[in-house]
Design a protein around this nucleic acid. Structure first.
Length: 173
DNA sequence: GTCCGGAGTT
DNA sequence: AACTCAGGAC
C-alpha cells in the first residue's frame, strides 16, 4: 500500500484492511474484488492482485514464513528491490538498508551530488556496519518526509544542516 | 524509459 | 494547475 502512496493515507486504509484480514489465510481465500475495494481508495489497483499472489505463494510454497533470502523474495509478485530490503532488514534482522525516494533525496542533498538508490544503500550499510542501521534508516525516511521535503526543505529545523552540502551551498534558483 | 492512480500539498 | 507520494512491472 505504500508504493507511490503517502504513508498517512496508506495507514488509514491499512488499519481497516488488517481488521478484515488479520490472518494471511483469509486474504489468500478471499474474493479479489473485495480486496480491490481497499486499493481503489489508494490508486494503483494492480497491487491488490499482486498482494494476493504473493501471500498465497508464501503460504503454499514457503511454509507460511517470509523467506529471508533476497533472491527468494524477489520471486514474489510485487516484491522489488525496495520491499525485499525492507523485509530482510525488519523481518529477518539482516544488515540491509532500504532506500526510498525520501532517503535518496536526503542523502543526495547531503552529499551534494545525485545518488542512485544502490549507491545510497551501500553508503548506509558501510557507514553503520557496527549497528544502529534500522533506526537510522527509518529516521532518514521521516526526515525526508517531514523536514527535507522535495519542494522547499526546512533546513533551519534540520539536525544535519551543519554537515549538509545543500545547507552550506544551496542550488541557484 | 514509461506507465500506473487516487489523493494530499503548494 | 502542477507536483509528489516509504516502487514495481514491462
Amino acid at each position: 500500500m505504500l508504493i507511490r502512496t503517502r504513508s498517512e493515507v496508506a495507514e488509514r486504509v491499512f488499519l481497516e484492511f488488517i481488521r478484515e484480514y488479520p490472518e494471511p489465510e483469509l486474504l489468500c481465500s478471499s474474493d479479489p474484488e473485495r480486496v480491490l475495494d481497499y486499493f481503489s481508495k489508494l490508486g494503483l489497483p494492480s497491487r491488490a492482485k499482486r498482494l494476493i499472489q504473493a501471500v498465497c505463494a508464501v503460504l503454499e510454497e514457503c511454509g507460511g514464513e517470509i523467506p529471508c533470502d533476497y533472491r527468494e523474495l524477489r520471486r514474489l509478485s510485487g516484491v522489488g528491490d525496495y520491499i525485499a530490503r525492507v523485509l530482510l532488514s525488519r523481518v529477518c534482522g539482516k544488515h540491509y538498508s532500504f532506500v526510498d525516494s525520501n532517503v535518496i533525496r536526503v542523502l543526495s542533498r547531503f552529499a551534494g551530488v545525485p545518488l542512485k538508490a544502490s549507491e545510497a544503500a551501500g553508503i548506509l550499510e558501510e557507514a553503520f556496519a557496527g549497528g544502529d542501521l534500522p533506526p537510522v534508516n527509518v529516521a532518514l525516511i521521516d526526515l525526508g518526509s517531514g523536514v527535507c521535503g522535495p519542494r522547499r526543505p526546512r533546513c533551519p529545523e534540520c539536525p544535519l544542516r551543519e554537515e549538509c552540502s545543500y545547507f552550506s551551498s544551496p542550488p541557484a534558483p
